[in-house]
Design a protein around this nucleic acid. Structure first.
Length: 182
DNA sequence: AAATGGGGCAACCGCAGCCAT
DNA sequence: TATGGCTGCGGTTGCCCCATT
C-alpha cells in the first residue's frame, strides 16, 4: 500500500518548540480538543505537521504530566513490566499515571538499562567462584572507582548516584511549560 | 579559559494497525 | 476485497548542557 506522507513537508517547521507555539497548541486543544491532528495545526495557526503537534501535546503539554524525579516504586514497576512486556512502552506508560511512553523509554535507556546491567554483572560475579578476582574486574569496568572495596558496594554507590541524577534540582533544564507560563 | 566528550532528553522518522469508503 | 487516510507506537537522531581535561 502506497502511503502518503503524514504531512506536506514543505513549509513545515521542525525542531524544538517555542513557548509561542506551545501557547497556541495549548490554547487550541483546551478550547476545541484534538478532533483531527492532521487538520489541527492549520486551525491553530501552527506551521507544524499534525504528528509533531500530537507528540508535543501528549508528551509535554498535556495536563497532569509528571516530570523527572522517578520514585523507587515507579522504577520497580517499569522494570517489572519491561520484564514481562518487553519494549511495549505505551502499555507500560498506561500503568504509570502521569508518565508518557517517550519519557519512560528515555528513562529506561539512560538509567534503568545501565543499572540492570550493573546489577546483573554484580550478581554474576558474586555467584561465580565467590570473588576469585573481583577487584581487577570491577576496577576495569568501573572507571573512576578508585577504591577497590567490595564490588557490590561500588554498584550500590553507582545505583544511588543514578537515582539522585533524576532529582529535578540537579537536572535543571527549564521546562518549556514553565517558560510558557512566565 | 577553552576544548572536548558524554549523558539526558525532546523531537523526528517510518512502519503497523485500524477504520471508512 | 482493495484502497487510502489517520493515529499510535517504537527506534533513532541530534541538540544542549555539564563535567572533565
Amino acid at each position: 500500500m502506497v502511503r502518503t506522507p503524514c504531512c506536506d513537508k514543505s513549509g513545515m517547521k521542525k525542531g524544538t518548540w517555542t513557548p509561542e507555539e506551545d501557547r497556541k497548541l495549548i490554547a487550541y486543544v483546551t478550547k476545541y480538543g484534538c478532533w483531527n491532528w492532521r487538520q489541527l495545526p492549520k486551525f491553530a495557526g501552527l506551521s507544524r505537521c499534525g504528528k509533531s503537534c500530537r507528540l508535543r501535546w501528549l508528551n509535554y503539554l498535556r495536563p497532569n504530566i509528571k516530570r523527572g524525579n522517578y520514585s523507587k516504586e515507579e522504577e520497580e514497576t517499569i522494570i517489572k513490566l519491561h520484564e514481562s512486556l518487553g519494549n511495549r512502552w505505551s502499555t507500560i506508560a498506561s500503568q504509570l499515571p502521569g508518565r508518557t511512553d517517550n519519557e519512560i523509554k528515555n528513562h529506561w535507556h539512560t538509567n534503568l538499562k545501565k543499572r540492570l546491567k550493573q546489577n546483573s554483572i554484580a550478581q554474576e560475579e558474586n555467584s561465580s567462584s565467590n570473588n576469585v578476582f573481583p577487584r581487577e574486574k570491577s576496577q576495569k569496568r568501573l572507571k573512576g572507582a578508585n577504591n577497590s572495596h567490595l564490588h557490590q558496594e561500588t554498584v550500590e554507590i553507582i545505583d544511588s548516584s543514578m537515582l539522585s541524577h533524576n532529582n529535578p534540582q540537579v537536572n535543571s533544564r527549564p521546562s518549556p511549560q514553565i517558560l510558557q507560563l512566565q
